[in-house]
Design a protein around this nucleic acid. Structure first.
Lengths: 303, 303
DNA sequence: ATCACGCGATCAGAATATCTGATCGCAGAT
DNA sequence: ATCTGCGATCAGATATTCTGATCGCGTGAT
């Protein structure tokens, strides 16, 4: 008799093409996974994988079965989802991903608000870059994610959360020189522009803005965190574009000054995304409200 | 973690609305089924059934989950089917239903031919009336069935196997009186028409013919088998319509005579039917060929 | 009112299924 | 030739699932 356990293990194996890694992903030992795969092959009477010295390859039958298994497992997930939906909104586990340039600034208040308004909600947080979050979302390893919109992925639905305008962060001692002039673009071209490393959407957005504004700043090598970048700004090593969301937590007003853009300020739009097929719309609407609330704790204006 | 076992047990419970019967259908004891249902309810956090003194009722959540469970179990069946299909045509188990007026006359040669041509085919035979066969077919308890066409069921596909003309079976001593005259309809109206009991398609076909031919024979109470009916014919208690398929096995030529209809002979069309969603078309084509072959063992004509 | 019955829940122990940790053997890489 | 990574295999441990007996409750009959 076929079991879901077999299908789950096989799905992992199809993904990693490696018994050991698949087993680890399933939180079992490699022999356990091997046995279940073998049992599934025996049930079906077909070889699903080729065990070759160079690695594991799916047979044609394995490819087809893997697809069907994925569909079945998705249907089981949805079954569980519809059941949980009957218990009310935002109850039970919800796996939420956030991008690094949002997570540390939203989470403290989000988690507090969640505990308050939805005590039986169990938020499981994952922080990673947009591309990884989307992969996991589509794979079903995440239920929703907070990313910068738009994301061009047909299987994903999204709802905008709020606009997050950029400021120019400069060393405090240079603040006067910047705030006076209106030709920020020209001034920026003289500076070193400090950015996060490859893969961060914030980096791409900053570069895109520079292109539009015709700014040709010298770029530094990427940094792994905004905290580091602002330390570098404070030390006079360059300037950076900083989302308002991050300002409060990251900016030491004595050492770094934030220059607003006088007109048509660059901004990003943060949004909540989820699988089109998810069917937890009520959950996500409530979660979106919670996140908006977490952003502006005291009804602060968004200027 | 949800298991297929839980879904299988719950499907049975949803069908029988009775823990004991559902358990029996699943070939386990009632406590085993109760535990799995309870575990499923715990997993999902929802009550699926109301245990009331008067019986078991599905909750609204139970209704929805039952539907999803059925879809999942069907997908698992199809997964297993596609795997088996890769092993070749007509291998492994195939659950075949046949109507009572065909089963005993097709089976001997069908089983012999199957064993010869498809030694790894494991035919599981079920004999019942059309309505029961169709139910089981749609429920997935049967893979295919041999019934009289047409069947008006949109979820079912069919292929005609062969035409099976009817003869009029009369007592041997009365044969001359019948074979002479051409006005069979008039003669039949004088006789008692012996039929199978309610529910047999053969009964309906005979009655339909009589209506068309304007025959108003007196009807006897139904019998459970053609063998009984032919004993009664031999004893002079009446006449009956007998499909050619059954003639060889049932007719004692010394006691019963078969009168062919001179023109436009009544007939039935036997066909093979299966679920539209089945996807074992190759199997069914091969099986149809096998059944046709079983009908005419020596290339006998169908006159 | 009482009884008997059908039905599902519950429980302890038995039977299975599954997993772990150790080990083996093979094929490429060094 | 040796080493290394990987999957298979095995015995024993563990967890799950099942059985058979029993319980409690509500229902319908007497």
């Amino acid at each position: 008799m076929i079991t879901l356990r077999q299908l789950r293990y096989f799905q992992a194996l199809a993904r990693f093409r490696h018994f050991g890694q698949a087993a680890e992903h399933c939180a079992v030992t490699q022999p356990a996974l091997s046995m279940q795969i073998k049992e599934l092959e025996r049930e079906l009477g077909v070889d699903l994988v080729e065990r070759r010295a160079t690695g594991v390859a799916l047979t044609p039958a394995g490819e087809e079965i893997a697809g069907r298994a994925a569909a079945i497992l998705a249907a089981v997930r949805e079954l569980a989802e519809t059941a949980r939906r009957r218990r009310g909104v935002l109850v039970g586990p919800l796996r939420l991903g956030l991008i690094p340039s949002a997570a540390p600034y939203l989470l403290p208040r989000l988690l507090k608000a969640a505990a308050l308004s939805y005590p039986s909600l169990e938020l499981l947080i994952r922080e990673s870059q947009t591309s990884a979050l989307l992969e996991e979302l589509l794979r079903g390893d995440l239920d929703a994610a907070v990313v910068a919109l738009p994301i061009g992925e047909p299987e994903v639905r999204s709802e905008p959360l709020f606009e997050d305008p950029f400021f120019l962060a400069v060393p405090a001692h240079a603040a006067r020189a910047w705030s006076a002039g209106c030709d920020l673009a020209h001034q920026m071209s003289q500076e070193r522009l400090l950015l996060l490393e490859e893969g961060h959407c914030l980096r791409d957005q900053a570069l895109q803005f520079c292109q539009m504004a015709n700014v040709q700043a010298r770029r530094a090598l990427g940094a792994a965190s905004l905290a580091t970048i602002l330390q570098m700004v404070a030390a006079g090593q360059g300037v950076t574009l900083l989302p308002e969301l991050c300002a409060e937590a990251e900016v030491d007003r004595g050492r770094v000054a934030l220059i607003p853009f006088p007109e048509d300020p660059p901004k990003r739009v943060l949004g909540l995304v989820w699988r089109k097929s998810s069917g937890r719309v009520e959950d996500f609407a409530a979660l979106a409200a919670l996140i908006r609330q977490a952003r502006a704790p005291l009804g602060a204006s968004s200027g």
